[in-house]
Amino acid sequence: MAVPAQFKAIQHHLRTAQEHEKRDPVVAYYCRLYAMQTGMKVDSKSPECRKFLVKLMDQLETMKKELSDNDSINQEVVGNAHIENYALKMFLYADNEDRAQRFHKNMIKSFYTSSLLFDVLSVFGELSEENIQHRKYARWKATYIHTCLKNGDTPQ
């Protein structure tokens, strides 16, 4: 379904979920859970938003049944570790490329996706100060390097 305009803030989390549908269903599940919770806070009253959220909830319930034997879904403390490890893995890959001055679309996407996954960690509770810093740094780096490459500049 098309994402209602009111849900612009979660469209990239939903796209990340789609990208991980097969690669890592646990990541897909928690990205959608984050989108569900955030969407309900933004607008669960207007007909188009409510319709979208009901469909998203259907999808989450189906995923939960399909992944019923996966501890990362059954036990949120395991899910928390799974998402945090994945986010840090993406962050460290991008950071290593950055330090090696290898600037390319993949490393930009890794920085950006890791920042989205640090958002997703908030479904488990308050973010640690370290993860707040990681999220800020990753989002800034993704934006900065993307702009440099677009303008033909070399990122410093």
Binding site: Q37, M40, S44, K45, R50, V54, M57, L60, E61
Partner: peptide
């Protein structure tokens, strides 16, 4: 009509909240 619409919307919103709580085994 307005009040009926509003109560339908809030009932559906409650239903969504309950489904979310059940999904997270928080019921």
């Amino acid at each position: 009509t307005g009040s009926v619409g509003t109560s339908v919307a809030s009932a559906e919103q409650d239903e969504l909240s309950q489904r979310l709580a059940r999904l997270r085994d928080q019921v």
